[in-house]
Amino acid sequence: MATAASKNIIEIRNLHKYFGDVQALRGVNLNVERGKVVVIVGPSGSGKSTLLRCINHLEVETEGEVWVDGKRLSEKNKDINSIRAEIGMVFQLFNLFPHLSVLDNIVLAQRVVRGRKKDEAVQIAHEQLKRVGISEKADNFPGQLSGGQQQRVAIARALAMNPKIMLFDEPTSALDPEMIKEVLDVMLALAKDGMTMVCVTHEMGFARAAADEVIFMDHGLIVEKGSPDAVFNHPQEERTKLFLSQILSH
């Protein structure tokens, strides 16, 4: 079974997830190696978000196993908070804390979860804001920022925890077209820095440039996976071809 020394930082075995009668995942197997970028595509309702959310236990699996960095996630695992601290997550709707300034958004978890001193946390927050290119907004409140800026703050907030893995759930799909690039640029730079990333996104350009592996999901299963070139240009499965023709046609 997975160990800390294993090259796979994420190992998912036979993952099933039910919401009542709805079967969102129907036996997913997936390994992600350290430092790799995996892009997940697939039609709406195919279980992409559910899979991602099982990786940091925002959803609890009905059956199967999720291992992260050699630790099995389970309901009984008292360590879940410390495991989550190693996994950054970026949401479609940013989910910044509206009552806190941009700086405090990034400082809060560093202090209460990582136990960092204020000065250290503030310094790290400034470094991360610089990394995502919005140093000048530290004292603003989230409501005063554009969508693209908010999403970059959300990325900085996750990065400040020094996570080993970053999960992205359609980080650009709530953004106006002109703001998508600024977020994708940050994600590309992150990929270049060697961050392990699992991204649900339909941004083909990003997938081609950054992904080591593209996964196509449908009806709660991984239907096809491979390099961006293999999946996008030479899909083997009919469902993949159909899906690609639909998203490329608009």
Binding site: N56, L58, N81, S82, R84, A85, E86, I87, G88, M89, F91, N95, L96, F97, L108, A109, V112, V113, R114, A154, R157, A158, M161
Partner: peptide
């Protein structure tokens, strides 16, 4: 909001 906080390890 709860999900974002929990995902940060709180």
């Amino acid at each position: 909001q709860m999900e974002a906080a929990r995902s940060l390890g709180m």
